[in-house]
Design a binder for these strands. Structure first.
Lengths: 146, 146
DNA sequence: TTCGCTGCAAACGGTTTGCACCGCG
DNA sequence: CGCGGTGCAAACCGTTTGCAGCGAA
């Protein structure tokens, strides 16, 4: 199943009594085209030529977060980045290499299954989860440090 | 196995050629006594009566993060909080209820096992992971929303 | 005695807010 | 036409930085 696109996004907004505006479409497009989560300043740079005002950008991100179109993830040790959620992007987790810093998306349903059985045990009903695994990727294990 | 305490922390600092100072001990104690991850402003409030300077606090957190005594986790939609890592705290993940907002610590080794087998498949060597599961806790499932 | 750590105070810059205008529905 | 969304500009405040003095080792 492919992920939902611009058309579905527009409809989603209408369904939630939020207006479909050029600014919102611009932001949505930028996030869809990015391979990785974007911070607000990242986004600002990305959509720079559209002349989108910073204040507006913050308000759009806030709205999209409330509507659960995007959600925040931790990027560096102090910075928050945003990425699309289902159905606008496939869910995945992240493998982050401590040496080369590359992030690999991890699509694996075993994790979901384990998670489901754990939370079933506790009567907790899952909306979504996010996970980040830090370690050393195969390439960097082969390469001596520095 | 209990977690390492103040004495081990002091030794850890010495081993890393970092000095054992009253400020650092104060911060360590505050984090150890807290049930949940703390933001820097949280910490500032917590250790207020020690007269610790904000700038110093930020520098201590930075140092402890580099030494991997603590690490950042996402708190709200925009705020980063810090928590102790092993061996100063047991590793655990978080269940966050979207209605009451409470965070429950999750200690479960099934997750570790699944994670290990997934990363073994990819030749990725794990240092640590962090996960946050969002959903509805048993209490809130029983209670109608709002 | 040395150099890492700290307090102070100023600077910085990302984020928020108030307000008037615009334009989607 | 009404109200949600936007741009602008100022205010805010969490965080960073430079520097001089202190104190852990």
């Amino acid at each position: 199943m492919p992920t939902a696109g611009e058309k579905e996004f527009a409809q989603f907004l209408r369904d939630h009594r939020a207006r479909v505006t050029p600014n919102r479409l611009t932001v949505f497009r930028a996030m869809q085209q990015s391979a990785r989560p974007l911070t607000v300043p990242d986004l600002a740079a990305q959509v720079e030529d559209s002349g989108l005002n910073p204040a507006t950008l913050y308000r759009i991100i806030e709205t999209l977060t409330e509507l659960e179109v995007v959600h925040p993830v931790l990027q560096d040790h102090q910075n928050v980045a945003y990425e699309l959620l289902e159905p606008f992007a496939r869910h995945h987790d992240h493998l982050v290499c401590r040496q080369c810093g590359r992030t690999v998306d991890l699509y694996d349903c075993r994790l979901e299954e384990t998670l489901k059985s754990i939370s079933d045990d506790r009567g907790f009903k899952i909306d979504f989860h996010q996970m980040e695994v830090h370690g050393l990727c195969p390439d960097c294990q082969a390469t001596p440090r520095r």
